[in-house]
């Protein structure tokens, strides 16, 4: 299987252990999911994954994840830009804090965002006065998903901006381009693959998120019930085939997004942007 690169030892043992552990820990359990769905007939499977309540949960999960990833594409780019190009007091602390959603357990994020956006909360109160319901509504789901997927775009765009050649912008300016024109015609095309990669990573993460959303969404069937919660509900009712069926649909969606992300990264590499 291997063509040894050199005299370095240990291929058989490290590869053997890696593959064994991977198979036992990841591949076998995931295979169990697909095998479980074969215990129900095709009709039962279709009926489960296309029932009204399940479809409503797809719509919410998909749209809320899309909205959160879009918010992060715009603001993540802005944050990366400001962190790379400008100096301001507290910049290093802000830079470190961007990773908070990766380090903070999702349950903590969930209860904290709920406290802030509940009708009596710091932001919930003024929003309620304006007639906007934030917690316990689809907007609450978007807020939670924006929080948990916030670092992705910042962290994919930041290194690209750092490695940009300033000369390109100076050349554009010396040829008479305005700053806005330079941004749209020179900078944006270069950074776009990174923004889209960050968007796809945010979207994938937001789609599967559970912990933060269950607290803030209110979990009303057909209204604020995300797909992972629906899987949880089916599990609690011991409807294992149903849970497995919905999980297979979600997993297929995640793999498609993963594929798209890899294609985006490949596109970025081909354009010689990734260093």
């Amino acid at each position: 299987m291997a063509s040894r690169r050199s005299i370095i030892p240990g291929f058989n043992i490290t590869m053997g252990l890696t593959l064994s552990y991977l198979a036992a820990m990841v591949l076998l359990p995931l295979a169990a999911l697909f095998v479980k769905t074969t215990t129900s007939t095709w009709q039962e499977f279709l009926q489960t994954v296309t029932s009204a309540r399940v479809v409503a949960s797809y719509r919410l999960s998909f749209l809320a994840a899309f909205a959160a990833a879009s918010i992060n594409a715009v603001f993540g780019f802005l944050v990366a830009w400001v962190l790379v190009r400008y100096n301001f007091p507290g910049k290093r602390i802000i830079d470190g804090l961007v990773d908070l959603p990766f380090a903070l357990p999702t349950a903590v994020a969930g209860i904290s965002l709920t406290a802030v956006y509940a009708p009596s909360g710091l932001f919930g109160k003024p929003l309620a006065a304006l007639g906007i319901k934030s917690a316990f509504s689809p907007l609450g789901v978007v807020i939670a998903l924006t929080f948990i997927s916030l670092p992705f775009v910042v962290r994919t765009v930041q290194p690209i901006l750092q490695n940009l050649e300033i000369e390109n912008e100076e050349a554009a300016a010396s040829l008479g381009a305005g700053r806005m024109q330079t941004f749209l015609r020179v900078l944006l095309p270069t950074v776009l693959p990174a923004v889209l990669t960050g968007f796809a990573l945010s979207f994938a993460r937001a789609l599967g998120e559970y912990g933060s959303v269950v607290f803030i969404s209110g979990n009303m069937p057909m209204k604020t019930e995300i797909t992972p919660l629906l899987i949880m509900t089916k599990l609690e009712q011991f409807d294992y085939p149903g849970a497995a069926a919905v999980a297979v649909v979600m997993l297929a969606a995640s793999f498609l997004i993963l594929l798209a992300t890899n294609l985006l990264q490949w596109w970025g590499k081909r354009r010689g942007i990734w260093v």
């Binding site: 591949l27 999911l33 479980k36 599967g208 998120e209 992972p228 899987i231 849970a243 793999f255």
Partner: peptide, 19 residues
């Protein structure tokens, strides 16, 4: 394949072990 667990929803990560 090594990255796979990152793209699986946490709920599904629990579900597979129940199954």
């Amino acid at each position: 394949l090594i990255d796979l667990p990152f793209s699986v929803s946490p709920v599904i990560s629990g579900l597979i072990f129940i199954l």
